[in-house]
């Protein structure tokens, strides 16, 4: 009888742990890029086409390279005021790369993201940072290397 009670208790704990784990997994999977969309510049956008910006990366969702090609996104806190760009943060689509986020001030050459880009890392993005209606810019694969330290 004792063994039966112990077995039942163990089984209940096991079931509980698994159900919780499944719920956590499902919650984690749902908090991905589908929550936010990359806002492209439209034809009437008065923002500058190409800018060199300097700042710190305060949020970084890295892209994936390899058999899957998917870009990343960064939120850059601007360290200098930029003529033609009225916001404190810039939201940028990056190429794919591997490595730790660069903690230093970086200088990036950015261009407007239009949504018409052909490169695979601009077409699919792993996770989108909420830009709160601010249109995204983008950087090339080469510039993306500045966002990480190897």
């Amino acid at each position: 009888m004792k063994m039966f009670k112990l077995s039942t208790l163990l089984f209940a704990v096991f079931l509980g742990v698994n159900l919780t784990a499944q719920v956590v997994l499902d919650m984690k999977l749902s908090g991905t890029s589908s929550d936010h969309k990359i806002i492209p510049h439209d034809a009437n956008s008065s923002l500058s086409e190409t800018i060199t910006v300097k700042g710190y990366i305060v949020n970084h969702k890295k892209g994936i390279c390899g058999d899957i090609c998917a870009g990343g996104t960064i939120q850059l806190e601007l360290s200098e005021k930029v003529e033609g760009y009225p916001h404190s943060y810039m939201y940028i689509v990056t190429g794919c790369t591997t490595g730790e986020t660069n903690p230093e001030i970086i200088s990036l050459l950015v261009t407007k993201f239009t949504g018409e880009e052909k490169e695979c890392y601009y077409k699919d993005v792993v996770e989108v940072i909420d830009s709160k209606t601010i249109p995204y810019y983008k950087i090339s694969l080469l510039e993306t290397e500045k966002t990480i330290v190897k």
Binding site: C65, G66, D67, Y121, E145
Partner: peptide, 19 residues
């Protein structure tokens, strides 16, 4: 992939694969 030197710094781009 791309690799080499730019502005006297060694640079490597990510490797992309297409099938």
């Amino acid at each position: 992939k791309g690799y080499g030197t730019l502005n006297q710094k060694k640079v490597n781009t990510s490797t992309l694969r297409h099938f």
